[in-house]
Lab assay of single mutants.
Amino acid sequence: HIECVVCGDKSSGKHYGQFTCEGCKSFFKRSVRRNLTYTCRANRNCPIDQHHRNQCQYCRLKKCLKVGMRREAVQRG
C-alpha cells in the first residue's frame, strides 16, 4: 500500500496533490478552508508521524505544505 507522505499512515489516495491518509486530508482541508493559524509550543520541528500527528497542528500543517500539498487545490466551502 501507499503511505501518507505526511504521517506515514495508510494513504487513501491522492488529495490536494499528494498521497495522504483521510486524517491528514481532512486536517489540511479544514486548516485551509477556515484559514487557521497555529502556533508551535516547541521548536517548530515536532515529529509528525502516525502516533504524533495530532500533537502539534503547526508542524503538521508545515509538513503538509513541505511535502507539496497545495492550498489552491482545496475548494472553498
Rank of each mutant, 00 (worst) to 15 (best):
1 H>D: 15
1 H>C: 05
1 H>Q: 14
2 I>N: 12
2 I>F: 00
2 I>K: 05
2 I>A: 01
2 I>D: 13
2 I>C: 06
3 E>Q: 08
3 E>I: 08
4 C>L: 00
4 C>P: 01
4 C>H: 00
5 V>T: 14
5 V>M: 15
5 V>P: 15
6 V>M: 00
6 V>A: 04
6 V>F: 03
7 C>M: 01
7 C>N: 03
7 C>P: 00
8 G>A: 11
8 G>M: 09
8 G>Q: 14
9 D>M: 13
9 D>H: 02
9 D>F: 10
10 K>E: 08
10 K>H: 05
10 K>P: 12
10 K>W: 06
11 S>Y: 15
11 S>A: 06
12 S>A: 10
12 S>C: 03
12 S>H: 08
12 S>V: 13
13 G>Q: 13
13 G>H: 05
13 G>D: 12
13 G>I: 06
13 G>S: 06
14 K>E: 15
14 K>T: 08
15 H>P: 14
15 H>S: 06
15 H>M: 15
15 H>I: 13
16 Y>S: 10
16 Y>M: 07
16 Y>N: 03
16 Y>P: 04
16 Y>C: 13
17 G>D: 09
17 G>W: 04
17 G>P: 03
17 G>R: 04
18 Q>I: 09
19 F>H: 10
19 F>K: 06
20 T>R: 01
20 T>F: 08
20 T>M: 09
21 C>E: 00
21 C>Q: 04
21 C>R: 01
22 E>W: 09
22 E>R: 03
22 E>Q: 15
22 E>P: 10
23 G>T: 11
23 G>E: 06
23 G>Y: 14
23 G>L: 03
24 C>V: 03
24 C>E: 00
25 K>Y: 14
25 K>Q: 12
25 K>G: 13
26 S>T: 14
26 S>C: 07
26 S>V: 13
26 S>F: 05
27 F>R: 03
27 F>L: 01
28 F>S: 01
28 F>R: 02
29 K>E: 14
30 R>G: 09
30 R>K: 15
30 R>Y: 06
31 S>P: 00
31 S>F: 14
31 S>V: 07
32 V>L: 05
32 V>T: 14
32 V>Q: 05
33 R>W: 13
33 R>V: 14
33 R>Q: 15
33 R>N: 08
34 R>G: 14
35 N>S: 03
35 N>H: 05
35 N>Y: 03
35 N>D: 15
35 N>K: 13
35 N>Q: 14
36 L>S: 07
36 L>V: 11
36 L>K: 14
36 L>N: 04
37 T>E: 15
37 T>R: 13
38 Y>Q: 03
38 Y>T: 02
39 T>K: 08
39 T>F: 15
39 T>N: 14
40 C>G: 02
40 C>D: 03
40 C>R: 00
40 C>S: 00
41 R>Q: 12
41 R>A: 15
41 R>H: 12
41 R>G: 15
41 R>I: 14
42 A>P: 00
43 N>R: 11
43 N>K: 12
43 N>I: 04
43 N>F: 06
44 R>H: 11
45 N>F: 04
45 N>M: 05
45 N>G: 11
45 N>Q: 14
45 N>W: 10
46 C>V: 04
46 C>R: 02
46 C>S: 02
47 P>L: 07
47 P>C: 06
47 P>S: 07
47 P>F: 10
47 P>R: 06
48 I>A: 04
48 I>K: 02
48 I>R: 04
50 Q>W: 09
50 Q>Y: 09
50 Q>S: 08
50 Q>D: 12
51 H>Q: 13
51 H>C: 08
52 H>V: 12
52 H>N: 08
53 R>Q: 14
53 R>S: 07
54 N>A: 10
55 Q>D: 14
55 Q>G: 11
55 Q>F: 13
56 C>Y: 02
57 Q>C: 08
57 Q>V: 03
57 Q>E: 15
58 Y>V: 01
58 Y>R: 04
58 Y>F: 13
58 Y>E: 12
59 C>R: 01
59 C>K: 00
59 C>F: 00
59 C>N: 00
59 C>V: 02
60 R>F: 14
61 L>E: 04
61 L>S: 02
62 K>S: 11
62 K>I: 15
62 K>N: 14
63 K>I: 04
63 K>A: 05
63 K>C: 07
63 K>Q: 07
63 K>N: 02
63 K>R: 08
64 C>P: 02
64 C>H: 03
64 C>F: 00
65 L>S: 03
65 L>K: 04
65 L>T: 07
66 K>R: 10
66 K>H: 08
66 K>D: 10
66 K>P: 01
67 V>H: 07
67 V>P: 00
67 V>G: 05
67 V>F: 08
67 V>N: 08
67 V>A: 08
67 V>L: 08
68 G>H: 01
69 M>H: 00
69 M>E: 02
69 M>W: 02
70 R>W: 07
70 R>A: 12
70 R>E: 14
70 R>G: 07
71 R>Y: 13
71 R>N: 10
71 R>S: 11
72 E>K: 04
72 E>V: 05
73 A>E: 12
73 A>T: 10
73 A>I: 06
73 A>P: 08
74 V>A: 12
74 V>P: 07
74 V>I: 05
75 Q>M: 08
75 Q>I: 09
75 Q>V: 10
75 Q>C: 09
76 R>F: 13
76 R>W: 11
77 G>Q: 15
77 G>I: 10
77 G>S: 13
77 G>L: 08
77 G>A: 14
